[in-house]
């Protein structure tokens, strides 16, 4: 399994990288965990690969003013083990721990993963539940897109030609918040057959805020807005979870039919919400 030949650039600065991707068919290489297997199978045959690994300063995790900023080349492993993420965006740390396996988490990056936008990837559910923003830059532009406008369809994002993911901005979770990422992993690929990210804030005994992101079920990750509303208006977890698949088309494959995926989404939403609720104080 051997990739087709390509030209390779390893720019030493962001400016250089953006100039390189401004023209022609350029494919960005970050950790390579999605791109390289496709290239080996020759399902992807980019003419020119731009490696971000030598661009300095893209692998930061910082916190200020209620926002955690995560540079595009931060690996899943670094995210999972970062004290800042564990303390201020623990939902994301939990999601990162579910991605692939040890070796994939060591190489794969958050920027690469979200840019690839696999419909069964783990991050999107959490980024939606966290109401994260994604900062996209090009040689000429710099804009920030909410996660809900970023994941458009299977493998389709708001990234325009010439743009790259610079960073992911996550509003910090409050310490009192409950959170949970639950996933049914495909036994062979490890991808989410269904993955549910849940956040709960309580005011006294009541739920004052609920956020639910669902991945794997549909061609793109989505927020279960109806279920969120139900929870915020006093409905129980079971009642709310029962609505998460409503109005969504569901994927089917050898492992799970569309109906079963919807069912799993409901069950795992209930389970994720229950854990999140028990963690909220």
């Amino acid at each position: 399994m051997i990739p087709q030949d390509f030209e390779y650039s390893a720019p030493a600065s962001l400016k250089e990288a953006l100039e390189l991707i401004a023209t022609g068919e350029r494919k960005i290489l970050a950790g390579g965990m999605s791109l390289i297997p496709l290239m080996k199978l020759r399902l992807a045959a980019p003419e020119h690969v731009v490696d971000l690994a030598r661009v300095p300063g893209l692998d930061y995790i910082t916190e200020s003013g209620g926002t955690v900023s995560i540079g595009a080349t931060v690996t899943h492993h670094d995210l999972e083990s970062s004290p800042v993420i564990r303390g201020r965006a623990p939902l994301l740390a939990e999601a990162a721990g579910h991605i692939g396996d040890t070796q994939v988490r060591n190489m794969g990056t958050i920027g690469g993963s979200i840019a690839h936008a696999d419909p069964a990837a783990d991050y999107p559910a959490s980024l939606l539940a966290l109401e994260a923003q994604i900062r996209l830059v090009s040689a000429k532009s710099d804009r920030t897109v909410p996660a809900s406008d970023f994941f458009l369809d299977a493998f389709t994002t708001a990234i325009e030609p010439g743009e790259l993911v610079l960073e992911v901005l996550v509003p910090t979770e409050e310490p009192k918040e409950g959170y949970r990422y639950e996933k049914v992993a495909h036994p062979a690929s490890g991808f989410a057959v269904v993955g549910v990210a849940a956040r709960i804030k309580k005011a006294g005994a009541k739920i004052s805020m609920a956020r639910i992101g669902v991945t794997g079920m549909s061609s793109r990750a989505f927020r279960a807005l109806e279920a969120e509303k139900l929870l915020e208006s006093g409905a129980g977890v079971a009642q709310a979870a029962a609505t998460v698949a409503e109005g969504q088309e569901a994927n089917q494959d050898l492992y799970a039919s569309a109906d079963y995926r919807r069912h799993l989404a409901r069950i795992w939403a209930a389970r994720a919400l229950s854990v999140a609720l028990s963690r909220a104080s």
């Binding site: 199978l41 020759r42 399902l43 419909p119 069964a120 369809d153 299977a154 389709t156 495909h186 690929s189 991808f191 061609s219 088309e249 994927n251 089917q252 494959d253 050898l254 492992y255 569309a258």
Partner: peptide
Amino acid sequence: GTIAAVGQRLLDTTARM
């Protein structure tokens, strides 16, 4: 071919898209 061997997970999604 290759798309059948490695792509079945995404076939339905892709076709619908």
